[in-house]
């Protein structure tokens, strides 16, 4: 069951109408290492992972959906009211012809989202290592978008999302240690 809270996880501010940046950002919406892939990956793996880390996968999956919502808001704001000329200058004509001003789950190259972006191997260690890699790939993608972006307000939100990837990577690494049952230092309270 989902309980929806009608506000964003982190405030999204965009300085200017900039469809070109939206074209880059869509990678995090419908790309292989984007937020949709992340949310679906964890929400699917959680069923077959050992029970002591199910909660972690559920929590992170939920957070990824809130990130997806932030990315959608960013893309929407960057393209809202853009004229056909601006769409053309940004190289978004194929998207516009196909989808108008609607958002769509596709990557920066216009390839539609594909379930093969997600692995579900059913092996707890294989799945968690996949998740760690996914977080690091998403972190790298955010870095590349920040490198290309000249919008300080947008970058503020992107830097927040990038930091969350780091935290998730940490928690997945800890989950591996839990399954190894080999804490270097076991604390008892």
């Amino acid at each position: 069951m989902f309980v929806y809270e009608k506000k964003l996880l982190y405030p999204v501010k965009v300085s200017s109408c900039n469809p070109k940046l939206a074209k880059y950002l869509i990678e995090q919406y419908g790309g292989a290492d984007g937020e949709l892939a992340a949310a679906l990956r964890y929400m699917n793996q959680r069923y077959t992972i050992p029970d002591k880390v199910i909660g972690l996968l559920t929590d992170i999956a939920m957070e990824e959906f809130s990130h997806l919502e932030m990315i959608a808001t960013m893309v929407f704001k960057l393209t809202k009211d853009a004229t056909p000329d601006q769409i053309r200058d940004a190289g978004l004509e194929p998207h516009y012809v196909n989808h108008g001003s609607a958002l769509y789950y596709e990557n920066a190259g216009g390839i539609p989202f594909n379930a093969s972006y997600i692995a579900g191997k059913g092996d707890p260690i294989a799945d968690l290592y996949e998740d760690i890699a996914a977080e690091e790939k998403a972190r790298a993608t955010y870095q590349y978008i920040i490198d290309l972006s000249d919008d300080p307000d947008l970058n503020d939100g992107l830097k927040f999302l990038r930091e969350r990837e780091i935290v998730h990577g940490q928690r997945f690494r800890e989950a591996v240690e839990m399954l190894k049952e080999n804490y270097s230092e076991r604390k008892v309270f």
Partner: peptide, 14 residues
């Protein structure tokens, strides 16, 4: 910042 923990904060500038 996106984290509660200074030990996990890894800021990025291009």
């Amino acid at each position: 910042k996106g984290t509660l923990w200074p030990a996990l904060f890894g800021p990025y500038e291009s």
